[in-house]
Write a protein that binds this DNA or RNA. Structure first.
Lengths: 223, 223
DNA sequence: ATTTAAATGATAGTATTACTATCTCATAAA
DNA sequence: TTTATGAGATAGTAATACTATCATTTAAAT
């Protein structure tokens, strides 16, 4: 039996659905690889076109600009992560156990998911760490938010907020603590690998230390 | 008596010291205003030159590119903030009180500091919130780090880490908790104003709520 | 199997960005 | 008064971020 995971994306993010065509899938696949390789700033549609033996104009048929493409792949990631959270907490009754699972899913490098052939989730995870916040750190964040481009991110945070409230229904800051651990799962990883003086695990460079730190932090906060 | 605050900057950040000339000061002053107005992505030396009735080439004599300029002004901010932390904790004996002061200094909008005529610290604070992390979220962060461009940021975090250890010498994650509260002081503010669903203070949009949240978080963590 | 539509390729062109170079003029320190 | 330094003016180039058009291939519908 072969299962295929299809994540329905906000249609305003693209001009033509990249999931539905060969070129579209190649755009997603190789934009992830290219952004990971050279960073989002030096990523251009021209370079991407050369990489996949297509043309710049061809890519512009799918995405208005590279920022929309970044929002597309980050949105995809958050949706996929929420899906993983749901799957992995389905049979877990204890809310504290759920929370531990969430922290692990957030802060641990993922394996490449076979049910999505053209997306390398492990590399995508690296992109989210280094480029993810650039999706919303813009002057047009308000309009983008009105178009619901950050829906998947907010949904994930809401879900984690609910788990926090399951653990302690009187906790005052479930949403802020959610966004804190989501962001820090990525930032502490980035710091660990690039600015180690900003963390306590620069020597080992072991992401399980990030998990330990976040777990301790979140349980202390809600207790 | 008139006091002037001069912050010594890493000399590799600029080609010519902007603090020493009239044009240099105008570059700093108006780049802050322009980045705040239009965002860092759409900020160009051409536009800045028009703003100050100078030329593009003139600005390139001071800064290699706009990213160096961003690192310059963010570095300046972190240095200035560390200076403020030192001043405001000088006569405070209780480490817990020091910590509260730090959180307040991090998360509260600053008043424009009269001792630095050409820098509007209040607007600079807004820039740090929206653009600050772009200074290090690059592919060249490692080389930039070798050039000590993030020294002031790391110094500030180290200082906060020391205060955390004063409060609880056995706490295991002083550096990570420092970078967490520094980043969250800004991100929670950004979320509150732009993506309120990610916080618990979107309704009030009151930055003292961010202070309350961070205080509770940090004291829970080190207890 | 044939028609028709949709997707892609090929090519061209424009405005803006991100620089570098050079030459002159103003100014202020030596 | 010399002389360095700062700043204005102008020009030019390669890359980026697009838009437009037309031909061709591929896939879907009849």
């Amino acid at each position: 039996m072969e299962l295929k995971l299809y994540i329905k994306m906000n249609e305003k993010l693209f001009l033509r659905d990249p999931e539905l065509t060969g070129l579209g899938k190649k755009i997603i696949q190789h934009s992830i690889l290219l952004i990971h390789k050279n960073g989002f700033e030096s990523f251009t549609f021209k370079k991407l076109a050369e990489e996949i033996n297509s043309t710049e104009a061809g890519i512009y048929r799918y995405f208005e600009n590279k920022h929309k493409l970044l929002m597309y792949i980050t949105s995809w990631y958050w949706s996929w992560l929420e899906y993983r959270v749901i799957v992995h907490t389905l049979n877990v009754k204890d809310p504290a156990e759920k929370l531990k699972m969430v922290v692990r899913l957030l802060a641990t490098t993922v394996q490449d998911d076979i049910s999505t052939s053209h997306v390398n989730e492990s590399i995508l995870h690296q992109i989210i760490i280094a480029e993810g916040s650039k999706a919303y750190l813009t002057k047009h964040v308000t309009e983008d938010n009105k178009d619901h481009f950050f829906g998947p991110y907010k949904d994930l945070c809401a879900k984690i907020g609910d788990i926090l409230l399951e653990c302690n229904p009187t906790y005052k800051y479930p949403k802020s603590l959610s966004s804190t651990i989501v962001e820090m799962a990525h930032f502490q990883n980035f710091f660990m690998n690039n600015l180690p003086a900003l963390t306590d695990f620069g020597k080992e460079k072991d992401e399980s230390k990030v998990v330990d730190y976040l777990e301790e932090l979140v349980f202390a906060a809600i207790q």
